[in-house]
Design a protein around this nucleic acid. Structure first.
Lengths: 220, 220
DNA sequence: TTCAAATTGCCCCAACTGGGGTATTGATAT
DNA sequence: ATATCAATACCCCAGTTGGGGCAATTTGAA
């Protein structure tokens, strides 16, 4: 029986090594490529022959050079037969939805046990669309609400849109400001700043400043 | 007497508006352009005639699309007569130095009073190289140490280079992890994680996770 | 005009963070 | 051999952050 050929795209060397190690323990898989960003796998695919062309790509969403969503878009356009499963640490509505639109077939959280990822890859290879249990509900409701109201413009769920004011606050966060400094910049009470930031966190589905900055700077 | 023509490049709408307003109060200045990222001013310059070609550009370092350092590099290559003054919230050695290398003539912190910025622009117009008082020392020592030891490779001060391990830790920060979660990921004690993060902060000259993420994701 | 959303502001409190130390180990270079 | 440095780990403590509420006011849309 043919081995399932896997390519890994993941900027964390640690996780990349762990995944490669994990798959190497199973006879049914063969890791045909390891990459740390979207650019490098795209370059590599262009030089690949049938022998080392992956069946399935495990793709990190957040990466330098070219992020997972951009890479997925490009790869699915040129190699529609490759199935792509996104790996992420975030349960970010926008990214989940963008990944699906970009052509990803699966969506797993990085902190799932390796066995779950393994199962997901099998499922994917057999035509399934594996999704981490914890985000399945979210995706369903996203798709549903997106079908329901096609009258809106941006294909992004309205609840996720940050208001103008919130963007200004977020900018303050990105600039590394504290409640107090942001408050001074915007002529607001620190309490207000805090309220806005709490709301931003809810919309971006993060719980810390660092994650908010990351979510924002790494956005589409 | 000819007015000094200013272009502003700044992604914060608030600050952009404030700067424009500030300069409009003075007869000796004329704001000939306002932009929110490096890409847009470069596009605009290509379409500019002598009339609306700026003498001086105030350029934010950290911006979407094309950051201030990249933009400065491009602009100085095509329009060497335009003087560029960087605006930033960070006293970041690497960026200060990169800005100078890219061709910036001045380097001011955003939280300087507007009068200081005004004076700096005048000074720049008269051939000076204005630098915020608070970072002057830093720049001097940087240039000095860089002239002293030209034997090193990267044109970046060695003290600023993060070790491999520190990069892994930084990755944890960028992923929004806490001391504990990063510690679990890397099989370390939370104490160790903290020590590493303290060292990273020193090297990057930041004091918070958000600023570290920003400094890293927004790096050259 | 009337209702919903956005913006502003405040309280409490547990938890986490950042800065200051110090110390041990192993590797590398002199 | 030995000095230096990276990596590991711990202590203390002030200050900040994040999450849970609640409520007044302004704005915009129906």
């Amino acid at each position: 029986m043919e081995k399932i050929k896997i390519a890994l795209v993941e900027d964390s060397k640690l996780l990349l090594a762990r995944l490669a190690e994990g798959f190497s323990l199973y006879d049914s898989f063969k890791v045909v490529g390891k990459y740390s960003n979207g650019k490098s796998i795209i370059n590599s695919l262009e030089k690949s022959n049938h022998e080392n062309m992956p069946d399935i790509i495990l793709m990190d969403i957040e990466m330098p050079k070219k992020n997972g969503i951009e890479a997925t878009l490009e790869i699915k356009e040129k190699y529609p037969d490759i199935d792509i499963m996104m790996l992420t640490v975030f349960e970010d509505d926008v990214k989940i939805f963008a990944s699906i639109q970009a052509g990803a077939s699966g969506y797993m959280l990085k902190d799932e046990p390796f066995e779950s990822i393994l199962n997901a890859v099998h499922e994917l290879y057999n035509g399934g669309a594996p999704i981490s249990q914890s985000i399945a509900r979210k995706v369903l409701s996203l798709i549903k609400s997106n079908l329901d109201e096609d009258k809106n413009n941006s294909s992004i769920h309205p609840e996720l849109v940050l208001s103008e004011r919130e963007l200004e606050l977020l900018n303050g966060l990105v600039n590394g400001g504290s409640y107090t400094t942001i408050a001074n910049d915007l002529f607001l009470s620190p309490h207000t700043v805090k309220t806005h930031i709490k709301n931003i966190y809810k919309k971006l589905h993060v719980h810390t400043r660092a994650a908010a900055v990351r979510a924002w700077l790494g956005k589409l």
